[in-house]
Design a protein around this nucleic acid. Structure first.
Lengths: 220, 220
DNA sequence: GATCGTCTCCCCCGTGCGGGGGAGGCCCGC
DNA sequence: GCGGGCCTCCCCCGCACGGGGGAGACGATC
């Protein structure tokens, strides 16, 4: 059963782009589009999406208000992924406070977008470490942005988990990782499980794919 | 047991580069260096490497002659990976005809170098599809280069295997791939096994890593 | 002092994976 | 016609993997 996504953005171009990116995936299906927040609620009732990709800045009803309305009025509401053009958009944090499950920059790479949708669909209210890290880096250290930082904290792999993922991405087995880190295989299995859970991956292969797609490890 | 590699190149810089790249891998060990072909044979007898990374153009004894001499005089000779700066180097094909097991451009990416060493060590006399393909593309279609083309043929995945690898690289399980391609899971297993063998991968994770590292699939 | 997160290790358990075989049908080229 | 490559499917088998629990030790934080 594919992930059913509803696109909400006032720009047709953005909707088309998201549709192209998402429909290229075997496990994701775009079930509808809306051009403003006011159209969202009836549409959600009609098509029952798993995830709503929601722009923040829209005419009539913006993403924040639409999110609030959605969570207030719809039974068993879909997950909400807030999409924005501006990284330092205060509205994004408003939306997260309103109950959105994650946020994403429009200029994120396709794989990041896809990944975010999958994670959100699985009930993970997290953003991928790399994108958040980059986001955090853009803000610098001085800024406020406690929301972004908190998100980072929630999403981030621990140091050990990061080490394990890096070794997984070099093709090592659990036993080899254990030997490398001088710990037991059971310990490695624990870390691997944690990595899989945090990344929303089903197995180590998917985790390694995510590592590559996110830039956590780079080819070459 | 790591792969034991002997580096043979007249330029210290190249040796240092190869050493850095190869020793960064957990399963590869550089056991010696030689600056010219004449020093290779005694050194091979002494350190018994699994793989010799051999430059073609060297003073005293070039890579071709050194390869011939090595295969003629040493019992149980190591695998020979010919390394060259120039893609259209006629000497390379000479070396392959002399018995070398594969060839590699010096400007190949680290991952490709590492991969080539691993493959060669495992007795695969093949080069990775992507690098050979790129090589072939550089030559254009008009040129001769039967050697490169033959290498390409030997290394290349079949159409079906390529499809399977692409789906593996999207995180699909054998059962999911089977459903996608409308064949039995046993068929998929056959293709997966073929892919693993041709890529010198131990499991699907390593195959996916190779797919990314080689550019067979691209992130984003 | 209590709590929390991290790292470490342990148990059981099912199963997907990969190796090792083989085999039939198809098309192409020699 | 006959071989060879490719695609398809089948068998058996061992094991690494991953899920589900739990638990002790340590440090930081409250």
């Amino acid at each position: 059963m594919p992930v059913r996504v509803l696109l909400v953005d006032d720009e047709p171009l953005v909707r088309a782009g998201l549709r192209a990116v998402l429909e290229a995936q075997p496990d994701i299906e775009v079930v509808g589009e809306a051009a403003d927040g006011a159209a969202v609620i009836p549409l959600v009732r009609q098509v029952r999406p798993d995830v709503v990709a929601m722009d923040v800045r829209m005419p009539l009803l913006d993403g924040i208000e639409a999110t609030r309305a959605l969570l207030r009025t719809v039974a068993d509401p879909p997950k909400i992924l807030v999409v924005t053009t501006f990284e330092n958009d205060e509205y994004v944090y408003e939306a997260l406070r309103a109950g959105a499950d994650g946020f994403l920059l429009k200029r994120a790479r396709p794989a990041e977008i896809v990944h975010a949708v999958r994670l959100i669909a699985e009930g993970e209210s997290l953003l991928f470490p790399a994108s958040v890290r980059r986001l955090a880096a853009e803000y610098g250290d001085g800024g406020g942005n406690r929301a972004a930082r908190a998100e980072l904290e929630r999403a981030r792999l621990t140091e050990r988990e990061g080490e394990v993922l890096r070794l997984m991405a070099r093709g090592l087995s659990n036993a080899e990782i254990a030997a490398r880190l001088v710990v037991g295989t059971e310990t490695v299995k624990s870390h691997v499980s944690a990595v899989l859970a945090k990344l929303g991956a089903r197995d180590r292969t998917q985790a390694v794919i995510t590592a590559y797609e996110s830039g956590f490890v780079a080819p070459g």
